[in-house]
Write a protein that binds this DNA or RNA. Structure first.
Lengths: 101, 101
DNA sequence: CTTTGTTTGACATTATTTGTCAAATATAAA
DNA sequence: TTTATATTTGACAAATAATGTCAAACAAAG
């Protein structure tokens, strides 16, 4: 199963970009980007948007990878993880329906 | 839709317990428990276990409420929230299957 | 070997979480 | 109402976690 970091790295290399080029575009140190690709640091949402832009991948696709990975590692050690996800889906629908925006 | 805090408070009152009694059992300040019930602070997993014990509710049930609420608020503002949950479920299964323990 | 790119670790800085306490507010009893 | 008890709130401190910076180590290519 592909991790977010692996996805980022493969896309970056496919475009022939260097860490420092992408890192400069994201306005972060290249050490951090290296760690993100290695899975030792988590990107933030701003990073995801910028990465989608420079790597020319769909932002939603990248965001799904980002969020799902975060969630999965938060709960994978719990017996009731799957059940929690199902309830979470209900709550998300509830929150979205009741958020005045 | 019932929040985790509301569930805790209703169970506590049903048992006729005071904040300070429950808080002492959890080994936290009663101010924190009050905030947890009001939704202004998040309990941790140890709190959940203790709460299940003293309130005599199923630990899994409480944990599901705790995890699902945490997840829901993390992602509810994203367009792709539901998709992320579905991918997260796959990842959880993958992680569980590949975790040597 | 030299150059360029990547990875790693130590450390500082910043942000977030968590805890403590006392005052304010509410609730109930007399 | 007054008194006693319970709850809630906010200011602040302490602890913890996230993030950034930098340089050295390492890897790959020429």
């Amino acid at each position: 199963m592909q991790t977010l970091g692996q996805l980022i790295k493969s896309k970056r290399e496919a475009k022939g970009l260097l860490l420092r080029q992408v890192a400069a575009f994201l306005d972060i140190d290249q050490a951090i980007l290296s760690k993100i690709e290695k899975g030792n640091r988590k990107p933030n949402r701003e990073n995801i948007g910028k990465l989608a832009e420079i790597l020319e991948v769909d932002r939603e696709q990248l965001m799904v990878q980002f969020l799902s990975e975060k969630i999965a590692y938060e709960i994978a050690d719990e017996e009731c993880a799957s059940q929690a996800l199902r309830v979470a889906e209900k709550k998300v629908r509830y929150i979205k329906a009741h958020t005045k925006k």
